[in-house]
C-alpha cells in the first residue's frame, strides 16, 4: 500500500514537473530549456534535497518507463506521414543516414576506447546519435549503463544544435536534403525541432532521417561494436 502511494506520488510529481517544464520551455524557448533537461534537473534536486533514493522514485517511475517501448513504436507515425518524402528521396536518404550511423558509432567508440574508458560507458556512448528510447534499448542490449546513454543522447542533440551552423558551413551543406539528413542523423529529435523552425522541408527530411537512423543503428551497433572492440 505504501509502495503504491509512493509510486503514485512519483508518477504525479513527474507529470507535473513535465508540464511545468513545457511552460518554461515555451516561455524562453532555447535549446538548453528542453523539457527533458529541466524536468530531470528538478526531479534530481528534489530527490537530493529530501534524500530519496532513486529506487524509491522508480517505484512510480517504472510505470512511465513501461511506455518507452510503445513510444518507439509510435515513431512509425511521423515516418508514415512523411512517406512521400521517404519514397522520393529514398536512395540519398538511406545512403547518407547509414553512412552517418557507421561514422557515429565508430568515431565515438574508437575515441572512447583510446581514451581508456570502460566498456559499460562505451556501450552507453555507442547509440548517442539516435532518439533516447531507441538509444536506451540499444545500450541495454549491449550491456551498458542505460541512464548514461540518455545523457550522451542529450549531448549529441544539444551539441548538434549549438554547432550546426558551423558544420553546415564547413561541409558546405546548402541543400535542404543535406541539412535534414545531417541534423536528423546526428541530433535526432532535438535537432529536428530546431531545423523545423528554419524550414519545413528540411525538418521533414530530418524526421525521416532520424527514424531511419534509429533503425540502422539498432541493427548494426552490435556487429560494429564486436569489430571495433
Amino acid at each position: 500500500m505504501i509502495d503504491f502511494l509512493i509510486g503514485l506520488t512519483a508518477i504525479l510529481g513527474t507529470c507535473i514537473t513535465y508540464v511545468f517544464s513545457l511552460y518554461v520551455h515555451k516561455r524562453w524557448n532555447v535549446t538548453i530549456t528542453a523539457p527533458v533537461i529541466i524536468s530531470t534537473v528538478l526531479i534530481i534536486c528534489v530527490l537530493l534535497i529530501f534524500q530519496i533514493p532513486y529506487e524509491t522514485y522508480m517505484l512510480g517511475g517504472q510505470w512511465i518507463d513501461h511506455l518507452l517501448g510503445p513510444a518507439v513504436v509510435a515513431l512509425a507515425y511521423p515516418l508514415y506521414m512523411q512517406r512521400h518524402t521517404l519514397r522520393e528521396l529514398l536512395i540519398p536518404l538511406l545512403v547518407g543516414t547509414s553512412l552517418g550511423a557507421v561514422v557515429g558509432i565508430s568515431s565515438g567508440v574508437l575515441m572512447a576506447k583510446w581514451a581508456g574508458f570502460e566498456e559499460s560507458i562505451i556501450y552507453a556512448l555507442t547509440p548517442k546519435s539516435v532518439t533516447t528510447p531507441v538509444a536506451m534499448a540499444v545500450t541495454e542490449n549491449l550491456g551498458g549503463i542505460i541512464p548514461l546513454a540518455a545523457v550522451f543522447v542529450m549531448f549529441a542533440g544539444i551539441g548538434g544544435v549549438l554547432i550546426h551552423n558551423l558544420v553546415f558551413r564547413l561541409f558546405r551543406l546548402d541543400h535542404y536534403l543535406g541539412r535534414g539528413v545531417g541534423m536528423g542523423s546526428a541530433s535526432h529529435a532535438i535537432g529536428t525541432a530546431t531545423l523545423m523552425e528554419d524550414s519545413q522541408l528540411a525538418g521533414s527530411v530530418s524526421t525521416v532521417a532520424m527514424v531511419i537512423s534509429a533503425v540502422v543503428v539498432s541493427v548494426i551497433a552490435p556487429a560494429l561494436i564486436f569489430l571495433l572492440l
Binding site: 512519483a10 513527474t14 507529470c15 514537473t17 513535465y18 528542453a34 523539457p35 527533458v36 524536468s39 530531470t40 526531479i43 534530481i44 530527490l47 532513486y54 522514485y57 522508480m58 512510480g60 517511475g61 517504472q62 512511465i64 518507463d65 511506455l67 518507452l68 513510444a71 532518439t131 533516447t132 528510447p133 536506451m136 542505460i146 541512464p147 548514461l148 540518455a150 545523457v151 542529450m154 529529435a189
Partner: peptide
C-alpha cells in the same frame, strides 16, 4: 516523448 524517458534520465 520526453515525458516517457524522464524517469530513466533521472537515474544519471
Amino acid at each position: 516523448l520526453a515525458l516517457f524517458f524522464i524517469p530513466v534520465t533521472v537515474g544519471v
